[in-house]
Amino acid sequence: MNYRNKHWTLILGMMALLMMVSGCKKKPPPPPPPPPKPVTATLSANPSSIMAGQSSTLTWNTEGADDVALDGQKVNVSGSQSVTPAQTTTYHLSAKGAGGTQEATAQVTVMQPTPTPTPAPTPAPTPSDDQVFAQAAQDIYFDFDKADLRPQSQQILAHLAEVIKAHPNWKVQIEGNCDERGSTEYNLALGERRADAARQALVQGGVSADALKTISYGKEKPVCTEANEDCWQRNRHDHFTLMH
């Protein structure tokens, strides 16, 4: 009896839901298929800072994804893994599903033990500008025909803005790119918007506009040429170059 009641409640609930849905969609064109569930992905490292030789645990969670890869290795949709990087490493989680592709990164900072009894203490090697830049200036990715910044891209750009501000002599080129499917000329305009979206975010983050140059490559400089969503996504990106 109890079970039956539950059953009825469920049916009534669904009917109410249906009515609500149909009430919202008054326009004549047939309703589009339900949008695929948006893909979410998080990745964290604990601790995020270790001494060389120690371990850190990566933990990840995804939703709506059926193809999840950690640094290119296929993994479960959520899980954890212990890592022992020799130097500071950024781990990259890629979650793919019907709703799109979502990326997440986590960095494990590795501190080198101070050399104790070394006779002539060599100064810790300071990373070159190129290394610092490469660390901070990760590519950011876009949806098809869109130039809107994803939340993850905004985080990357906020961090990048700080790094650029710390190097007042830097000049950074922002390169907007598109996948192969759109038309050659329109993709140049779309690449302009993608580069400009990153430029605006960096300027909002306090970077001088003079330190930034944008260029659109449209679909003229693809990083891959396969005709599949994975490659198309890789090509829908802004790339950053430190100009010398």
Partner: peptide, 10 residues
């Protein structure tokens, strides 16, 4: 022609 010379998209 199309231009982004005004830094406002093309």
């Amino acid at each position: 022609f199309s231009s982004s010379m005004a830094a406002n998209g093309s």
